[in-house]
Write a protein that binds this DNA or RNA. Structure first.
Lengths: 260, 260
DNA sequence: GTCTACATGTCGCTC
DNA sequence: GAGCGACGTGTAGAC
């Protein structure tokens, strides 16, 4: 069970003590603070006073969230140290989160801290991400017929001049097939990417016919127009089907990892 | 003053009520929950049970944070709706955060909720993001009239005995001008720094008049006092204007790179 | 609404 | 450590 300590309506001097101790003992900290924030580093910023939520994680990750918006207004991905102290002159709690590389610092000056939550959280639960582009690629490589033809896989992540071809196949007639995979709706940049690989490859292969395929769950109309113009093809892939294969593969992978 | 309500050690049925009400009334919510999480959308993921921190913001932003790491393990940048209910069968609190475009859903199933914080936060503080001091210096060097007079740039980062002068200008009357740039509020040490450069420079230039300027978005009263005493000047720079020039510079650079 | 380029991007890989 | 590409990238601006 999570150990949770709550500090409400404590004075700022005490708040600085509590925070300092919690940081040193690597607790997970959540606080509500009326504060201003300054950031110096690769860029710099100044946030004027207001009420915010601040999270300091056990590994030093530091996040300042405004009442709206998905992303933190200021943050520090990893900190070399976090210092908390009560500034007698200003009568404020100063939190400094310093990162050494790149050299960056976030300074919070809090005039009110109505709440501090200090907790020890136990979290060993595994996180599985399904059907990443890489997984789709591996599954299509193992089962190229999922693309709707009697394809045979020749190579994965084949290096060509400008980058890597996701899948390099041959079709039933022996034609070379270049496949560009997108996990979500394919856009014009995906088509350009595919074209780029084919152009590069054609320099090596000469007059051999090269088919180009975008494999994605869907494609934008603009992208399809360009695709048709370039005489390239679109093969729709079913993510649910892929996910099924992914799950099978995940369990298999788990077993492999167990034995290695 | 922020309105903060804390709910500790309440049973799950009550927790669902509290959360549901807090979501409807658009509070800022922080909770600690032992939960598992599933995500379906552009990709899909499964996070097995563990103790996490969850933030639900007043605009529907939804974040699930593990005890370590800068980025949330699951999230929803904006939600079309968030539903909280107590599942009688499982005896768990189910939180569903749904986003319509792209169609995505995050489902949290909580078996323990040791803490809920519901708050109303007032935050109207402006957020300023500005360029690095180096960029400000380069822009002011290219456009010295931004300092409000017919200045002409003579040198950048001019070496003098104790260090480097940010900007070395001449004014309309041919006077030498030393500029010390600060990207945020100039303090007394900035004035001392400027004075130091001028003193060093005056040894070389003799009796020639040397003007000293602090160029910063703002200056502390203490610093301004010292500045006046030393007969130095403060020129306020507008970071928004500088930022605009920074953007133009970026595009210009892009063109240069194209031609090189 | 879609496309495009930028970000204190971050993250994870190879070299 | 630097370089490069992917990301459930998010975000802002142009068309």
């Amino acid at each position: 069970m999570a150990k949770v300590e709550v500090f409400e309506r404590i004075d700022l001097r005490k708040a600085a003590e509590v925070l300092s101790k919690a940081v040193r003992s690597r607790r997970n900290i959540y606080l509500i603070a009326k504060c201003d924030v300054e950031y110096y580093g690769r860029s710099s910023s100044k946030l004027e006073e207001g009420e915010r939520q601040i999270i300091i994680k056990s590994d030093g990750a530091f996040l300042i969230h405004r009442p709206t918006g998905h992303s933190p207004v200021n943050w520090q991905p990893e900190t070399s140290y976090i210092n908390v102290e009560f500034d007698e002159e200003e009568g404020k709690v100063i939190i400094k989160a310093v990162r050494s590389k790149p050299r960056e610092i976030v300074v919070v000056r809090a005039s009110e801290i109505p709440l501090i939550v200090s907790s020890v959280l136990h979290d060993s639960g595994a996180f599985y991400m399904y059907v990443s582009e890489k997984e789709i690629r591996d599954i299509l490589a193992a089962h190229p017929t999922l693309l709707g033809e009697k394809f045979v896989t020749i190579d994965i992540e084949k290096k060509v001049e400008p980058g890597f071809i996701d899948l390099y196949l041959k079709d039933g007639k022996g034609n070379v097939v270049v496949v560009e995979i997108k996990r979500s709706t394919a856009r014009v940049d995906a088509v350009r990417q595919l074209k780029k690989y084919i152009d590069a490859l054609s320099k090596h292969l000469g007059h051999e016919r090269i088919r180009g395929i975008i494999a994605a769950p869907s494609i934008t109309s603009k992208a399809y127009e360009l695709l048709a113009k370039e005489k390239l093809e679109f093969k729709q892939i079913n993510l649910k089907v892929i996910t099924e294969y992914a799950k099978k593969k995940t369990s298999a992978k788990g077993i492999l990892e167990f034995f290695k």
